[in-house]
């Protein structure tokens, strides 16, 4: 039987029912980990961030409006946890060709020289390399670029997820993209 999130939330809020809380965690865990893994590298402890997201979710559950989809609310919460994590994390100063490992160098060289899309066998490595490059950018720039380029969200969707105005999203995306282009330029073989 599929879980009924509103009923589980009610049970947790009214009776602090741990079984309901566990069922809610099981229901939302795939969504949360997918977002976290999309946005942070393996070295940034994705499981710790998922745990932090759920802890915050339960602390703020009383403020959740059942009129809006739980998945949207959870996505927003997860993104906020990621953004706070980036803010408190020391940023890598700059990334140069020499800082890349042989796999990444090979991939970067391929991306610079390719006329065709990269082979599908390199997808996971490309994702890891892109996150590594994004780590050199400020938290808000990293968030807007990930949402725009990796999650393929529209300006309106990003505005709804971050609480920024549409104009701010556009301006931030433009500036962040310039910084990303400079970061890519530094990786030229």
């Amino acid at each position: 039987m599929p879980p009924d999130p509103p009923a589980l939330i009610r049970q947790w809020l009214d009776h602090r029912d741990e079984a309901a809380a566990r069922a809610l965690i099981d229901h939302l865990y795939p969504l949360v980990t997918r977002i976290v893994r999309r946005h942070v590298t393996g070295r940034e402890n994705p499981e710790d961030l998922a745990q932090e997201t759920f802890a915050r979710l339960f602390n703020q559950l009383a403020r959740y409006d059942p009129a809006q989809p739980l998945e949207n609310w959870t996505t927003r919460l997860t993104l906020n946890v990621c953004r706070n994590h980036w803010r408190h994390q020391s940023r890598r100063p700059e990334l140069h060709w020499e800082d890349l490992n042989p796999v990444e160098q090979n991939l970067a060289e391929h991306a610079w020289n390719a006329d065709q899309p990269l082979p599908s066998s390199t997808n996971e490595d490309a994702h890891a390399l892109l996150l590594k490059i994004l780590q050199t950018l400020p938290a808000d720039d990293r968030l807007v670029l990930t949402l725009l380029h990796l999650d393929e969200k529209t300006t309106d969707q990003i505005a709804a997820l971050t609480g920024w105005s549409r104009t701010l999203v556009k301006v931030r995306a433009y500036r962040a993209r310039q910084k990303l282009r400079q970061a890519i330029e530094r990786l030229k073989p």
């Binding site: 991939l107 970067a108 391929h110 991306a111 610079w112 390719a114 899309p117 990269l118 599908s120 390199t122 997808n123 996971e124 490309a126 994702h127 390399l129 892109l130 380029h149 990796l150 393929e152 990303l180 282009r181 890519i184 990786l187």
Partner: peptide
Amino acid sequence: ALHHLTQAARQA
């Protein structure tokens, strides 16, 4: 280069 990289990363 960025386009190639993001295109592959999206399919990870």
